[in-house]
Amino acid sequence: MSDVFWITVAGAVVTYLTRIGGHLVLSRFERVHPRVEAALNAVPAAVLTTLVAPAMLTAGPAEWIAIVVAGIVSLRSGLLTMFLTGAAVLIALRQFMG
């Protein structure tokens, strides 16, 4: 079997371990301490931020404008509207701003 095959198999195994690992560790405890509970409640905001913020760092004006517009739209409307608006602004601006 090729290197690619083994890299993929091993990559899939370690990925599955990350996707189930946190649950396997936590489920060993009878009770979840309130501080742990509070930490878990912060997970979505914390991780999603790390997927957005550094991307802003390497971006340019077109991306910044698109993300600000999308952010404002998200205050008033649903996720799909927000996403499509942001994408449209981005694609439009990229036609003439790198």
Binding site: P44, L48, L51, V52, I67, L79, M82, G86, I91, R94
Partner: peptide, 21 residues
């Protein structure tokens, strides 16, 4: 792919989900 905004669509989506929390 760049003109189509490929590399930045996911950050926009993730911002949307982030805002919903």
């Amino acid at each position: 792919a760049h003109a189509l905004g490929v590399d930045f669509l996911l950050p926009i989506y993730f911002l949307g989900v982030l805002m919903s929390f």
